[in-house]
Design a protein around this nucleic acid. Structure first.
Lengths: 202, 202
DNA sequence: GTCTATATTGGGATAGAC
DNA sequence: GTCTATCCCAATATAGAC
């Protein structure tokens, strides 16, 4: 609980700003979005908004984090036993919010490519977490005999994440490109691996 | 052949600029590279350099195109019967030039995400070409019995391209991440597909 | 073809009043 | 906490001399 009312209110305002920002960016895209525009969307001045975030880069990192939070709330539950379904559902949802895909692609690329970028460490951790979640899921599937033992959980997790990222580029270039189908194709390759004789009993 | 000496010289100068730019970016990365810095590298003023390119964005698109040209000269020959080997060799080479990977990731992401970006069409075509080359290669491998008939050439080509792009993000976040190994793992999944009973005779 | 110098803009950061 | 005002900087883009 917050120590003071005003503190709690500050937190709430931050959340309000982030939620509104996601909305604006989902519609307008990221490339042409300035702090000023996001400020307008919540009825604040640019300076007023920057009262809550120390810089533009911090603001955008928090927007990305907020998006993760929202997506996790929707697609996260039962991740352990449905990771691939959650991911395809999320990817399907992403086709409805091109601006957010663009935001993510841009911010993650900038931060990844520059070790000094303030969000670099954030993304390092984010990717490690996602890979770990998927690796765990794959191990579970292996234990259940639905994936061959010759599949390396960590490496395959990294591959799924990479494909998901890369498919977005091709989708942005051509919105008729079917990210979900391609992701499912990869999953089929994984579940069909050579030593996977065992079929789900069901 | 050029119509006039001065015209040919202009072309040569452009090439010189692009080659020098690749060199600078390979070392310094893309994020903090301005037109002025690239101009310095060839002993021109900023205005002098922009005599050869109409804008900054055009300049950077040409730098990316030049890189493709250089890479194609080295890794392109015999692409038809060794596409996957060429790709892994190229990816291995890329680990030596982080700045260029960063440049590519950034420029392609910006251009992909914005239909109005001057390089958007360039990348649409570039991806179509690469996918087509890989799809053709996969068909050849299928004809030779090295890949199962249940593999969809176009979709699999898109997947390989996506993985290649996405692996770069993870490598940028952690240079010890092995892009080549992960790409080879994907290729193994593809060649091991279920109905691929035929093994290379060799 | 190349330079110097300047225009222009876009936008982030900051100071200080309320 | 929020606003207004302003600062300031980075760059690109352009004009015009040589």
């Amino acid at each position: 609980m917050a120590r003071r009312g005003s503190y709690a209110k500050g937190i709430a305002k931050r959340e309000e700003i982030l939620t509104a920002a996601l909305d604006v960016i989902a519609r307008n895209g990221y490339r042409r979005t300035s702090v000023r525009e996001l400020a307008d969307a919540v009825g604040l001045s640019q300076a007023g908004l920057l009262h809550y975030f120390s810089s533009k880069e911090e603001l955008f990192q928090e927007i990305v984090r907020k998006r993760d939070e929202v997506d996790t709330a929707v697609y996260g539950p039962d991740l352990a036993d449905r990771a691939i379904d959650s991911l395809t559902a999320l990817v399907a949802h992403n086709t409805q919010v091109p601006g957010l895909v663009q935001l993510y692609a841009q911010v993650s690329t900038e931060a990844a490519g520059d070790p000094d970028h303030p969000s670099h460490a954030f993304f390092v951790e984010r990717y490690a977490n996602i890979r770990e979640e998927f690796a765990r899921f794959i191990r579970t599937e292996q234990a259940a005999g639905r994936i061959g033992e010759d599949i390396d959980p960590e490496a395959t997790a990294a591959l799924i994440v990479a494909a998901t990222d890369g498919l977005q580029t091709q989708w942005m270039l051509d919105p008729s490109f079917d990210m979900v189908a391609h992701l499912e194709q990869l999953w089929k390759l994984i579940t069909r691996s050579s030593s996977s004789g065992a079929q789900p009993v069901d």
